[in-house]
Design a binder for these strands. Structure first.
Lengths: 230, 230
DNA sequence: CGAATACTTGATGAGACTCAAGCGCCGTGG
DNA sequence: CCACGGCGCTTGAGTCTCATCAAGTATTCG
């Protein structure tokens, strides 16, 4: 059984500037694509997509740009849970509301999918259910990997793992374009901005990487980088 | 549609000392119980239930005792991903093999359920699918919470959060019985055994907790404990 | 009772945080 | 064209927390 949801035009209050794609069945991407219709939305860099505690009426897929999901601590600090790049789905929650905030790292475009009725539906459509289940399990594995990194690991290990993660996701040939600021990296790795900067400088001095510009990283010695990994 | 799997008695090679319950359909527990038959197994404290990399032929439910899931790092250190108590399910993997090891913290009894064919089946049985999906999402939330704790948080914050987590899971009235060693706690929180010990002592000096014995904790001032939490 | 194990406590040092400048890149405006 | 801020990043100096190394105490078990 295959299901297609018609998205009610209720999101209109989000922003008059949002672009609509109310047509049926959106494309498949690499993964089993879902046959859901969604709403295309644009966000400027640093804009909030949803806040912690908001009703989780929708979940999202990144079309272009980068999104971060994060949480703010009582002392004002921020923990970034993950970065979401093209094709990634984020904001899919078990409960009624979002447990994390989502913000645009760079200018970005996302598709918002209505969640209403999804739970009951998911389990009647093989592909859909399969997709969401596998998404949940993949996220779980990623979260555990992140825990591992945060719990153990020196600053150098964290940075090395981070660079390799980004390199892999960008599918890049030893050149990384960092879409996020040093502060974002720090909040993702549980470090301070100064330590991130110092560690990158040290890696450059060691000849492991090069930093032609602050946001561009050249992986000069991937073996050395790998050897830092836990 | 509701499905019931007959578990073949193939687990016989696990250990001659394991106790068997080859009977059919095991009970439901509080959650939507599954109509799966499983194999009851006993483990002495510190015994391995499965290892990282093992075929994930089965997943498990704790009947009594406590289990830890963990990973060993190249430098010999250990990161504990979670503790599993009565009723908890662990070892359910997306992929073909276990990404973590599982070990008995105390003497324990678990039920092993065959996983074979579960993926395809899960999506045809509402309750079953629902249960597993919700289990995955709950685990995900827990993993994120754990990340948050590990990434930020001083030793005191970690210990405070840990004590509250255990208290909640034991449903206890201000008295906690710690089933795990200081080393286990350290490996769970990304600390050393000495820091765990010192921090507990400090909390006792502050009057926040009392330690009648090493493994028994009295929460004397839950407000103070909570105020340490992120 | 003795030995092993688990936990606590102390002294010291390394690594990361904090506070504080300093640099470099850009966009703005003179 | 250059001066001027503003912002993000880097670098430095001092401090603090937690890890490490090393005893010392308590508890369990044979």
């Amino acid at each position: 059984m295959s299901v297609s949801i018609a998205v009610a035009a209720k999101h209109a209050n989000i922003a008059p500037s949002t672009v609509w794609s109310s047509g049926p069945a959106l494309e498949a991407d690499a993964r089993p694509g879902f046959e859901l219709s969604g709403v295309v939305m644009h966000f400027a860099a640093e804009r909030q997509i949803y806040a912690e505690g908001d009703d989780a009426r929708s979940f999202y897929k990144v079309v272009s740009g980068v999104v971060r999901t994060c949480r703010f601590l009582s002392d004002g600090r921020r923990q970034i849970d993950g970065f979401h790049m093209e094709g990634d789905v984020f904001g899919f929650e078990a409960g009624a509301d979002h447990r994390l905030s989502a913000e645009a790292v760079s200018e970005c475009t996302v598709i918002a999918y209505r969640r209403r009725g999804l739970e009951s539906m998911v389990f009647h459509d093989d592909r859909l259910g399969n997709w969401f289940f596998s998404h949940a399990m993949t996220s779980l594995a990623a979260a555990r990997e992140h825990s591992l990194l945060l719990g153990r690991g020196s600053a150098a290990q964290k940075i090395a793992a981070f660079l390799q993660e980004i390199a892999q996701r960008e599918g890049s040939d030893n050149t990384i374009e960092l879409p996020m600021s040093r502060q974002d990296i720090a909040d993702y790795l549980g470090l301070t901005i100064e330590t991130v900067s110092r560690t990158l400088s040290q890696l450059e001095r060691d000849g492991t990487i090069a930093l032609p510009t602050a946001r561009r990283v050249l992986l000069k010695d991937r073996r050395a980088l790998r050897s830092l990994t836990v």
